[in-house]
Amino acid sequence: MDAIVVENIVKRFGSVEALRGVSFRVRRGEIFGLLGPNGAGKTTLIRTLLGLLRPAEGRVRIFDMDLERHPEAVHRFVGWVPQERAMDPFLTGRENLLFVAGLHHIPAREARDRVDGLLELVELTGAADRITRGYSGGMRRRLQLAMGLVHRPKVLLLDEPSLGLDVQTRRRMWWLIEKLRAGGTTVLITTHYLDEADALCDRVAIIEQGEIRGLDTPDALKQRYGGPPLLVLEWGEPGAHGRRQLIDSLKALPGVREVAERAGGVWVRGDDVVAVTRAVLAECERWGVTPARLSVRQPTLDDVFLAMTGASLKESTEEMSA
């Protein structure tokens, strides 16, 4: 039995189709990522899974319970860590947790014990009795995570878990999520960070304009859609002698699919990276060019995204936030 089964969900806002027939399954115990730019429909999808939005078509099953017929399945099985600052800023961390525990009908004594444990888990014991208005971004995220765990859900929905966090704080967030999964919790995250999807997720669904464009493990996606590895050649010392000729001859090499000039170097993509490397080095010798560095870059999820949608996720994300 899968943790979440989403079948052909369609959601419209007026004439805008936010979700156009989305289907996927989240297996038990995995970290599943929904990767896509802002506005792709990720949050709409999460809110549909929570029963906060009603889809026009399709259905959702959570641990084999149909959401339409059993809306309480969400409350029993699902924990939610929303994107917005969903806590009371005038309460302490502990009070926020006790409050949510009360709404989950956990008796006071048990709630106190659980809250102590959760504060420890997210490393907020020391700040537990401070007003959350003074919390840093990372502390807020961690408290929200704890708030989503109060009722011991089997599935955790995390909406952009590391949005706006610095590198160190993100790593800590990832570590926490890994730890939860190790404890048996199924995790569904949305993200528009490629490295997050890559580092954290067992499987990734790429979503754009309300549609799933591809779904697999990050490695499989990269192998299938990312194209061959990229040979990156960096010039190093100044002096353009022979470079022009080198580039032209590289373009004519058999097995080379793409040659792109970049600031400070050239990128070469070919089917067989070993053969291409040999040939490139031979051409360098022929034209008297000594590259400073030669490296192989494996395809990234951004390449996958580019191949699938014709747009770079990095760029489309920057556009959105610009």
């Binding site: 906060l52 409350h75 939610w80 969903a86 009371d88 709404l103």
Partner: peptide, 17 residues
């Protein structure tokens, strides 16, 4: 306005509470 209400709706709370 802050979205906290939505967060509360994801709990089994009777909405009228």
């Amino acid at each position: 306005e802050s979205g906290f209400f939505d967060r509360l709706l994801a709990t089994p709370m009777h909405r009228v509470s």
